[in-house]
Every structure is written in C-alpha cells, then in structure tokens.
Computed example of a mutant assay.
Amino acid sequence: MSEQDFELADRRSEEEREAQIAAASRALKIAGRVRCMDCDCSISLARIRAYPAATRCAECQTDFEQEQRCR
C-alpha cells in the first residue's frame, strides 16, 4: 500500500468514527436524555454508545445498582 492509500484509509476511518458519534448523539436526543437524571451531569458518549437508553451517568448507575442489591 502506498502512503496515499494509508492516508485515505485513515481519513475514511475518522469519517466513520465521526458519523457514529453523530448518530449516537442524534439517538440520544431523540430519546430525550443527555444529562443524568440523578446528578444532572452529562452522560458520557462512551456510556451512550454502550447503552443508548441510559438515563444515569455511570457513577450514578453504579450507586443505584448497589442500593438495589442492599434492599
């Protein structure tokens, strides 16, 4: 592969990643949640990608699940 081929592949990879981020952001806005329902902090993009229906940030979700186990 030539240097130009590598550059093209890198550019395409970056474009795909940006498109995935934009799609996750749109899906989240459609779902109506971009902020944690408990602490009102932003829900991380990584969490949204992993679980698009998330209503809590990872920290608050962990706390919530621990509270549920103790009951």
Rank of each mutant, 00 (worst) to 15 (best):
R49Y: 04
E18F: 01
C36K: 01
I30A: 09
D40S: 15
Q4T: 05
S25Y: 10
R49D: 01
L45K: 05
R33K: 15
R47W: 06
R26L: 03
K29C: 15
S44H: 04
L45C: 01
L28E: 13
D5C: 09
Q4N: 06
I48L: 03
R47H: 08
C70R: 13
A9K: 14
E14F: 11
M37C: 08
F64W: 12
A58C: 10
L28P: 00
A31Y: 10
R17Y: 07
A31P: 00
C57G: 03
S13M: 08
D38F: 07
Q4E: 12
R17C: 03
R11P: 03
C39T: 05
E14Q: 12
S13L: 11
Q4G: 07
I48T: 01
R47G: 00
A23G: 00
V34P: 00
I43R: 01
R26P: 00
A31H: 07
E3Q: 14
D5Y: 06
C60Q: 03
R49F: 10
I43G: 01
T55C: 09
E14Y: 13
A19N: 07
L8C: 02
E59V: 09
A9R: 13
E67Y: 12
V34Q: 15
E65N: 15
R69Y: 06
E7V: 04
A24F: 03
E65V: 11
R56L: 15
E18Q: 11
Q20S: 05
G32P: 04
C60N: 04
M1L: 10
Q66N: 07
R56V: 05
D63I: 10
I48H: 00
A19I: 02
C60E: 02
A50R: 12
D5G: 04
E15P: 00
I43H: 01
A46Y: 09
T62R: 14
S25M: 15
A9L: 09
R47P: 00
M37W: 05
T55N: 04
A23V: 00
C41M: 10
C57F: 01
L45I: 06
S13C: 07
T55M: 05
D40G: 05
F6M: 13
C39I: 08
Q61T: 11
